[in-house]
Design a protein around this nucleic acid. Structure first.
Lengths: 340, 340
DNA sequence: TTTAGCACTCACTTTAAACGAGTGCTAACA
DNA sequence: TGTTAGCACTCGTTTAAAGTGAGTGCTAAA
């Protein structure tokens, strides 16, 4: 379908455009070392490439710009795997060198270095918190009428919620309740917590304790609240540095999209395992028409999976991004290995 | 120093400029109802006001723009207290209506509605976490070789940190250690924790336990880590909507400043009690030359204090902002009252 | 003291011309 | 038959000039 020469020209156009963000003309291409034929020949070939939809003109006498189809082809077939520089490798390795024991910190840090090294915006999705199981429930009384419920999961995730304690309830009652709850709830997946609390446990407590209802209802409301999957976003303001986002209106609508945490989370979740790119229209949101979203998955040992993503203009340094995200997701997976 | 007429004109100029962001000319002023004299008279008065430094021209034949001195005078002497609209009052009240029990949520929500109602950027500084005292220390074993230390303060603040447990240490040993630590550390201000752990407690454990050193050193490093005072920022992207920040370079440097959490925290901390405004140059950062920062304090019952701040262009709706922040800080103080 | 009138200033807008990077097409060449 | 030099043409961008209008300061009269 495409001759070798056309492939070469397409590659040069996209490489150059990624670098400069300027339409690429035939003379510019002719000057490249790898190109041995004249600008006229190139013009002919470019007309072909345009007919086939791989490149476009911005106006009738402008140079060519990659189309989305062009980027797609480039990503699928023309990408030369890039060796990261020593410096980049070291930066990432160092970031993972200091012992981080909490999931949140690792993710936070990963989002940070990813956006810093790329100048794009990084988004990291944690694993479904629902699938994790309750490890232990603890209650710390704070005053006569309030206490904090602390929920520790088997993945080391900690959540806490304050709640009211009715005055007629004694500290020992509270302890007793916690003991019962711990006995019955350990190992229960968080997603089942709600159901368990409303049936089995309620029944259970009724038999073992007097006037438990009020305190229990408070505690229950504390435990049952949503556990939204959190998004970790790094380098949100990097978007401003991209020349394609000179238009504030575009920036604003893109920010609005990113801030829809649920929709974004769904989007990230929908990617398959490994590295994936969504180019322009392939993204479900209008505000991402000029953007590409690269996603890569990482693993948590207990066969759970999370996603790291990178949001930038379609004119992205795909090969470097691929290498970086590859290395980073491996580092993350490695760090988590053996935790669970 | 200023005649009544000059005061009136100054007020009209600033009010109008705050609304439109356009230089105000003599004819515009003459059209206002409250103004009964001609544009020529106004021009004369404006020349005076300019001589005294309250207003400025952007070029030799432009209308007038308030100077920083002008804003300062306006804020100090011309501000008519504004009644909030019923709608605004309801919005705030509703936000505080659903029972929020955790400090973080209250603050998060406050930052959210503040930035939403103002279209400026809100920044909230919590109280010094150092002054709070340890309520309870809990340790949840996660696996053979790791555990989570959970730290609950008397203010209901929860921090957690994972750490390694040496294999030769049994679960009972860990429990014993926690018991000792709890006995000795309850009520100790977090800021003293470091010191206590290194002297007294170390000594203590040496007498009561064999081979405690390794586990303890892990645990200690987990407990002693920084407790940075967190900043809660809302509506960071609102900055983009202000016409004075059309210039992306300015936006970028302002973002860079805001992201310096320590410097920002120091700045907020340095404000005195009540409401305070820093106009333009009164701010310590270059990137805030065109900004005003309004700060207001809230209280936590145990005579600790936090700060809420609003960052916007010098051309701010000061009177509405004052009223809003006043109401909001009162709501916050009220919510916290009785927690501690 | 106030104000009408007027000359003047200067940013902003509009229009036209010049520029130049780039194209498509044609004809000649290897 | 594929390649390329040459050339007319397109169209966004830059530059210059002219025009517009909101606003000022000053003067002289009410």
């Amino acid at each position: 379908m495409l001759t070798d020469r056309q492939l070469l020209i397409l590659q040069v156009i996209i490489d150059d455009f990624i670098l400069t963000a300027q339409p690429v003309g035939s003379r510019t291409i002719a000057k490249k070392e790898a190109v041995t034929f004249s600008s006229a020949t190139i013009r002919n070939e470019m007309a072909d490439l345009e007919d086939q939809g791989f490149i476009e003109k911005t106006h009738s006498s402008s140079g060519r710009v990659p189309s989305e189809k062009g980027y797609r082809f480039y990503v699928d077939h023309l990408l030369s795997p890039l060796r990261l520089s020593q410096q980049e490798i070291v930066t990432i390795r160092d970031a993972f060198n200091d012992k981080m024991m909490e999931f949140e910190r690792v993710v936070q840090k990963s989002a940070g270095i990813l956006s810093e090294m790329t100048n794009y915006t990084s988004i990291i999705l944690g694993p479904e918190v629902f699938e994790t199981k309750l490890k232990q429930l603890q209650i710390v009384p704070l005053s006569d009428h309030s206490a904090i419920a602390i929920l520790v999961t088997d993945t080391g995730h900690v959540e806490h919620r304050a709640f009211n304690v009715p005055v007629e309830m004694k500290g020992t009652d509270l302890e007793k309740m916690v003991n019962i709850l711990n006995q019955r709830l350990q190992g229960v997946p968080l997603v089942k917590l709600h159901e368990k609390l409303y049936t089995e446990i309620n029944e259970m407590l009724r038999h073992h304790m007097d006037h438990h209802e009020e305190a229990f209802s408070y505690l229950r409301s504390a435990l049952v609240e949503d556990h939204p999957t959190k998004l970790y976003i790094g380098g949100k303001t990097n978007i401003l540095m991209q020349p394609e986002f000179r238009d504030l209106e575009k920036v604003r609508s893109l920010y609005a999209t990113i801030e829809q945490e649920n929709e974004m989370a769904d989007l990230l979740r929908s990617g398959q395992e490994g590295i994936q790119v969504r180019i322009g229209q392939e993204n479900p949101f209008d505000s991402m028409q000029n953007c590409s979203l690269i996603t890569a998955t990482y693993h948590l040992g207990n066969n759970q999976m999370g996603t790291i993503a990178l949001l930038g203009p379609t004119r992205m340094e795909y090969n470097r991004m691929f290498s970086l995200m590859n290395v980073l997701s491996k580092h993350m997976t490695n760090t988590f290995r053996g935790w669970y």
